[in-house]
Design a protein around this nucleic acid. Sequence first.
DNA 1: TTACTAAATTGTAATTATTACAATTTTACA
DNA 2: TGTAAAATTGTAATAATTACAATTTAGTAA
Lengths: 136, 136
Amino acid sequence: MEKYVKILKKNDLKITSQRLIVLQYLDENCIHPTADQIYSDLKINNPSLSKTTVYNALVALQKHGIIQAITISGSELRYDIPHGMHHHFYCKKCGKIVDIDISCPNIKKMSEFGHKVEEIHGYIKGICKECLKKGS
Amino acid sequence: MEKYVKILKKNDLKITSQRLIVLQYLDENCIHPTADQIYSDLKINNPSLSKTTVYNALVALQKHGIIQAITISGSELRYDIPHGMHHHFYCKKCGKIVDIDISCPNIKKMSEFGHKVEEIHGYIKGICKECLKKGS
DNA sequence: TTACTAAATTGTAATTATTACAATTTTACA
DNA sequence: TGTAAAATTGTAATAATTACAATTTAGTAA
Ligand SMILES: [Mn+2]
Ligand SMILES: [Mn+2]
Ligand SMILES: [Zn+2]
Ligand SMILES: [Zn+2]
């Protein structure tokens, strides 16, 4: 838990138990959860937790680049602690999101366009290995 | 307009005036509009148009790969006729989405993962050239 | 430790994009 | 031209996200 306190302190964010458990949840569950999923799971052991607080915590953490929002599914935001550069694969059948460990060679090229780049997202959509097996 | 009839026919989609004007709108307005934007603009000259029809048309066109949905902004879906392979830049300040003409060298690599790839999206987020000028 | 202030949390209500659905209209085809 | 399947329409429902005001808490300095 001291690990998460350090992260918040480094980013000049006030230390609250709510931010700590959200951060811990994302760190320990690499499932790219939605805000609602985070809320439901944490609510079990933290009955006083409010959903608005989860949203607020996610916004704060995102603003400081500690976590990132993933828009791949289209109907909801999902969250991730980006340990290293990676892309995401979204299975249209089962809705699963998995990490794809490839780096993006386009990052260097981006400077030519004159825009200030802050985030790069690579989304691949299709049918996952497991669903392919089941489907055939 | 015959151009759009052909596209629908080739994809075994029934020819309706609503689908034609949605298709024409996307073809002539490279602004990556939302469903609501498409509806509002077309409603002016097509007062009987229903918003549900716009949604239905977009789903049908997307299912056949004629158009693509862009999830970059997080709060809404935006649509695009992908003439060639390109990525998208989203300005966090003004909300604009512009095409970035780069190809994705990762497409080849994707086969290694065992998933069936159907779509590839490259999203870059930051501050656009124009907003950078204004802001300084 | 205590008191203070700014910021965070909470619960509820509002908003907004999208979907569901049943009635009506239209398309494709014989 | 007649018919069946599919598309359109309008309205109502859903669900993710945001707004907001009251309450609580964190950080800090006396
Ligand atoms: Mn990830
Ligand atoms: Mn585009
Ligand atoms: Zn799957
Ligand atoms: Zn801009």
